[in-house]
Amino acid sequence: DNLVIALHSYEPSHDGDLGFEKGEQLRILEQSGEWWKAQSLTTGQEGFIPFNFVAKAN
């Protein structure tokens, strides 16, 4: 599964970004460059996240 966990909170700064809290679990939908499309397992919302704010969940 493409599950990751947030290492830091992220406040969206552009339309289409997905905000999240530290410790939140996300599902990665697309990996492309430094911005990945993800879905929050907490809110169900989708958007782009900075890849270096998350780590693979085990």
Rank of each mutant, 00 (worst) to 15 (best):
E30C: 08
N52S: 10
F48K: 15
L3G: 02
T43D: 06
E21W: 05
D1K: 04
Q31S: 14
W35M: 14
A55V: 14
L29G: 03
S9M: 05
T42S: 13
A38K: 00
K22V: 09
G19W: 02
L3K: 06
F51E: 14
G47N: 01
Q31D: 14
N52Q: 14
K22W: 00
G23R: 00
N52H: 10
G16F: 07
I5W: 12
D1T: 07
A57Y: 10
Q31I: 04
G23H: 06
F53P: 01
A57N: 04
G16L: 08
A6H: 02
E24I: 02
V54K: 00
F51R: 15
D15P: 12
T43E: 04
K22P: 02
Q31H: 07
K22F: 04
E24Y: 02
T43R: 04
F53G: 06
E34T: 12
I49H: 02
L26W: 01
T42C: 09
G44W: 05
N2K: 09
S9K: 14
I5P: 04
F20T: 06
F53L: 13
D17E: 15
A57K: 10
E46A: 13
Q25T: 15
S13Y: 10
K56Q: 10
F20C: 05
I49M: 03
F48I: 08
I49C: 03
Q39M: 10
H8K: 15
D1C: 10
T42E: 14
I49Y: 00
P12C: 06
G19E: 06
S32M: 08
E34P: 10
L3P: 03
I28M: 03
E21K: 13
A55T: 14
L26S: 01
Y10S: 03
A57G: 12
E46Y: 07
E24Q: 06
Q31G: 12
K56C: 11
D15S: 10
Y10P: 03
L7E: 09
A6Y: 00
H14W: 07
G19C: 10
G44M: 08
D15E: 14
N2E: 05
A57L: 14
A6I: 02
F48S: 07
E11N: 10
G44N: 10
F20D: 01
K37I: 11
G16N: 13
I28T: 03
V54F: 04
L41N: 04
G33I: 05
K56A: 14
L41T: 11
F53H: 10
K22D: 03
N52I: 01
D17S: 13
L26F: 08
A6V: 04
P12H: 01
L18N: 03
D15H: 12
F48N: 11
T43Q: 05
L3H: 05
A38S: 02
W35T: 15
S13M: 13
E21P: 01
G16R: 10
F48P: 05
L29A: 04
L18M: 08
G47D: 01
H14N: 15
S40V: 04
G33Y: 00
S13K: 15
D17Y: 15
K37F: 09
V4R: 08
A38P: 02
L29P: 00
D15L: 12
E30F: 06
R27L: 13
W36H: 04
G19P: 10
F51G: 15
Y10V: 05
H14F: 10
G44R: 09
K56F: 12
S32N: 15
F20N: 03
I5C: 10
H8E: 12
I5D: 05
P12D: 06
Q45H: 09
S40L: 05
A55M: 11
L41P: 07
W35L: 13
S9T: 13
G23S: 04
G19D: 03
I49T: 04
Q31F: 05
L41W: 00
E21T: 11
D1M: 07
L18C: 01
N52A: 09
E24C: 04
E30P: 02
I49F: 06
G23I: 02
H14C: 13
H14Y: 10
A38I: 02
W35S: 14
L29M: 07
I28D: 01
A57Q: 11
G47R: 03
K37D: 00
E21S: 13
V4K: 09
F51K: 15
S40K: 12
F51M: 15
F51C: 15
G23V: 00
T43Y: 01
F51Q: 14
S9D: 12
E11Y: 07
I28V: 11
R27H: 13
I49W: 00
D1G: 11
Q45A: 12
A55I: 12
F20P: 02
S32V: 13
A57E: 15
P12S: 07
G33W: 00
S9I: 01
W36C: 13
T42Y: 11
E46F: 08
P12Q: 00
W36A: 15
G16I: 07
I5R: 08
G33L: 02
W36V: 12
Q25D: 07
P50N: 03
G47F: 00
D1V: 05
E34Q: 11
K37R: 13
L41V: 15
K37E: 06
A6L: 01
K22Q: 07
G19H: 07
A55N: 09
Q39E: 10
S13A: 10
L7D: 05
G19I: 05
E46M: 13
F51S: 15
Q39T: 08
K22I: 05
A38D: 00
E34F: 11
K22T: 10
L29W: 01
V4H: 12
I28H: 00
L3F: 07
G16E: 08
E24H: 02
H8V: 09
W36T: 13
F20R: 00
E30V: 10
D1P: 02
I49K: 02
S40C: 06
H8Y: 13
P12M: 04
D1A: 07
T43M: 02
E11S: 10
F51D: 10
I49D: 02
L3T: 14
S9Y: 04
K37P: 02
Y10E: 00
L18V: 06
H8C: 11
S40F: 01
L29D: 01
N52F: 04
G19N: 06
L18R: 01
S13W: 08
